[in-house]
Simulated assay, not measured.
Amino acid sequence: MFITGELQYIAEQTINNSSGTYIDSLDQVTVLDFKRNDDYNNYTVAVFADWYINNAWSVGASYFRINIDGEFNSSDIDHSVHYSRNETESSTSVNTRYFWHFSEVFSAKLSIEHYFDNGEYDSATNFGVAINARF
């Protein structure tokens, strides 16, 4: 059994201040100052588990959850926008992998993984084939 986990925190802040001169179809000149501020905190928790049936074959499962908590502010001379975002996204998956060591240098990995997003019916299946060389 091989179990790994991940805890991650990201604080992201983006500030954008710009100004521009705009000329419309009637040749009227408008000067605009634009300000935008994004401030987000992202919290991630993930757990991965693999059970090795033998040295070549494993089956596993994973759980991933992210919480996004943030503020968005935008303004120019005519408009101002503010909204908050607080949402949680999660997904689970099951997988199986087979490692075939067919020479002293080369090995192959075959994998199938199925994802379930937010516990709903949205899902995806990924197939993978890889050849690795170790010198």
Rank of each mutant, 00 (worst) to 15 (best):
L26V: 04
N67V: 03
L32E: 02
V59K: 04
Y9A: 09
Y22N: 01
W57Y: 12
D50I: 00
D69T: 05
A61S: 14
T88H: 03
H79R: 03
N95P: 08
N42E: 14
S25Q: 12
Y22V: 13
D27Q: 09
I23F: 10
G60E: 15
N42Y: 11
S74H: 08
D27I: 00
A11C: 03
S19W: 02
I66C: 03
Q28T: 10
T92E: 13
G60H: 07
N86Q: 12
Y52N: 12
E71L: 11
L7A: 14
G60D: 15
Q13L: 00
V47D: 00
S58Q: 12
I23T: 14
N42P: 03
N86L: 07
N86T: 08
S75Y: 05
S80T: 02
D38P: 01
A49R: 02
W51T: 07
Y9G: 00
I68L: 13
E71W: 00
L32S: 08
S18L: 04
V29M: 01
A11N: 15
R97N: 13
T30G: 05
Q8D: 07
G70T: 05
G70F: 10
V29C: 02
A46L: 03
V81C: 02
Y63F: 12
A61M: 10
S91Y: 06
A46C: 04
H82Y: 08
E6I: 15
D24H: 06
A49L: 04
A49T: 10
S93V: 07
I53Q: 05
Y83N: 13
F48P: 04
D76Y: 07
T88Y: 00
I15N: 10
I53D: 01
T96N: 07
T30E: 00
R97Q: 14
Q8A: 13
D69H: 10
Q8P: 01
I68C: 05
R85V: 04
W57D: 04
N17E: 13
Y9M: 08
I15W: 02
I10A: 05
V45N: 08
K35M: 02
W51N: 12
H82A: 08
I53V: 14
I3T: 15
G70S: 11
T44I: 12
N95S: 03
T21K: 09
T44Q: 01
D27M: 06
W57L: 15
A61F: 06
S19R: 08
N17Y: 06
V45E: 02
V31K: 14
S84R: 14
R65D: 07
